[in-house]
Simulated assay, not measured.
Amino acid sequence: MKNKIIFMLLLLVSLIFSSCSIKKMAYNSAANALAPLPEKKVKPDTDAPNPVTALTGEEDAELVGEVFPIILKLYEGMHIANPSHRGLAIMTGELYIMYSNVFVEGPANYLSDDEYDKKDKAFLRAKKFYKRGYNKILSALNTAYPGFTEAVNSDNAENIEKMLKKCKPYDTEALHWAGAGILAAFSLDPLDIQSLQVLQGAVLMLEKVCSLDPAYSGGATWEILAKFYASAPESLGGNIEKAEKAYKKALELSEGKNPSIYVTYALSFCVPKQDSKGFDEAIEKAMAINPESDPNNKLVIGISQKYAGWLKENKDMFILGE
């Protein structure tokens, strides 16, 4: 499968740098097919075969990690060749954020304190990719709504909300990933002035997603907000009541099939309260989920359960006095 994917990607790359008008037409068709404009996307038929499951349904994370950079760079190359294509900008940004989360920040979380330099270097690299990702998505939103990026960077709630009123339901994907990328970068380096400046914009974008499409991505946006509300100081928008409501909404929408939500509860709710019993229960619930209950998302389930297992083995690093 890997060789076939690489062959397809190389073929598409050859189209990108071709000057032939026929090939340009083929390239544009490929761009629209691989990264449709938000307003052109149709609601997927849940019963129809989806080639994306070749990645999301793969339980071997190492295999996905080998091919992921190739796919990412394909999209980025296509975007460079057509910088005004919003679909390519959004997809490239999403891929950078996914790659950073799963294959850069994720593995770094397992490093011990004795490997601080290596861990810090990985986190800085992850932050760089998060920024690269959300800036590409913001550029697409700015193309659709001139002044969008300036508003988000203004740290002015009134300006941001005014701009967000222009967004349509089909913008939820871009808003979700841009907001997720910003919060991820901020969590790795809260003292970064640039991340701090766009923090309010990120939260408002995510809240807009919940307004436009409350069930988006099975509660993924609610989970991100739950983490933020639970961990951020009140001066930056933290609120434990809002965190609990967001967590319950995420849990409801996930239908109990996503171990990540239980991991979030253990880390964001139980650790601050040093709730040992709650921590154990959440981790056990995460590990008890059968990957076959959601075969199209085996990759995420496997990664989350691996982390849950590590948290169980290293509980004394999070719950003191055990």
Score class of each variant (00 low, 15 high):
residue 175 L to I: 04
residue 179 G to V: 00
residue 20 C to K: 15
residue 15 L to R: 07
residue 259 P to W: 02
residue 28 N to S: 11
residue 118 K to S: 09
residue 255 E to M: 09
residue 162 K to T: 06
residue 31 A to K: 04
residue 113 D to T: 14
residue 207 E to Y: 02
residue 25 M to V: 12
residue 143 T to E: 12
residue 152 V to W: 00
residue 189 D to S: 04
residue 210 C to N: 14
residue 110 Y to M: 09
residue 192 D to A: 02
residue 105 E to R: 14
residue 188 L to V: 00
residue 293 S to T: 03
residue 18 S to L: 09
residue 259 P to C: 03
residue 215 A to N: 11
residue 246 A to N: 07
residue 47 D to M: 14
residue 223 E to C: 12
residue 23 K to Y: 13
residue 104 V to T: 13
residue 159 N to Q: 11
residue 190 P to I: 05
residue 41 K to L: 10
residue 5 I to V: 15
residue 253 L to Q: 09
residue 185 A to T: 00
residue 184 A to F: 11
residue 175 L to S: 05
residue 289 I to W: 00
residue 47 D to L: 15
residue 57 G to I: 06
residue 25 M to F: 13
residue 38 P to Y: 05
residue 231 S to D: 10
residue 163 M to F: 00
residue 81 A to C: 09
residue 225 L to F: 08
residue 77 G to Q: 14
residue 70 I to G: 15
residue 176 H to R: 12
residue 114 D to G: 15
residue 18 S to R: 10
residue 284 E to V: 08
residue 38 P to V: 03
residue 299 L to D: 13
residue 236 L to I: 12
residue 320 L to K: 10
residue 155 D to W: 01
residue 302 G to M: 11
residue 308 A to R: 07
residue 127 K to D: 06
residue 257 K to Q: 12
residue 32 N to V: 03
residue 83 P to W: 03
residue 184 A to W: 05
residue 204 L to F: 02
residue 159 N to P: 01
residue 139 S to M: 02
residue 164 L to Y: 00
residue 250 A to H: 06
residue 297 N to H: 10
residue 74 L to R: 08
residue 185 A to F: 01
residue 20 C to L: 13
residue 139 S to D: 06
residue 92 T to Y: 01
residue 85 H to C: 03
residue 218 G to T: 03
residue 246 A to D: 07
residue 135 N to S: 05
residue 34 L to W: 05
residue 183 L to I: 06
residue 125 R to P: 05
residue 249 K to M: 05
residue 2 K to F: 15
residue 116 Y to S: 05
residue 225 L to S: 07
residue 76 E to M: 12
residue 307 Y to S: 12
residue 46 T to V: 15
residue 16 I to G: 14
residue 39 E to S: 09
residue 278 G to P: 02
residue 312 K to C: 08
residue 117 D to N: 07
residue 151 A to L: 00
residue 296 N to V: 14
residue 146 P to H: 07
residue 115 E to P: 00
residue 31 A to R: 04
residue 321 G to H: 05
residue 50 N to V: 11
residue 151 A to H: 00
residue 240 I to W: 08
residue 155 D to R: 07
residue 201 G to P: 01
residue 181 G to S: 03
residue 163 M to E: 03
residue 189 D to E: 09
residue 194 Q to S: 10
residue 15 L to N: 05
residue 50 N to W: 10
residue 272 P to G: 06
residue 305 Q to S: 08
residue 312 K to Y: 10
residue 297 N to K: 11
residue 197 Q to F: 04
residue 272 P to T: 11
residue 198 V to R: 00
residue 314 N to K: 05
residue 211 S to Y: 15
residue 55 L to W: 15
residue 141 L to I: 02
residue 111 L to A: 01
residue 32 N to S: 07
residue 19 S to T: 15
residue 314 N to W: 07
residue 78 M to S: 08
residue 259 P to N: 04
residue 49 P to Y: 08
residue 202 A to L: 00
residue 321 G to A: 02
residue 88 L to C: 04
residue 48 A to D: 06
residue 211 S to D: 14
residue 59 E to V: 10
residue 171 D to K: 00
residue 221 T to G: 04
residue 230 A to N: 04
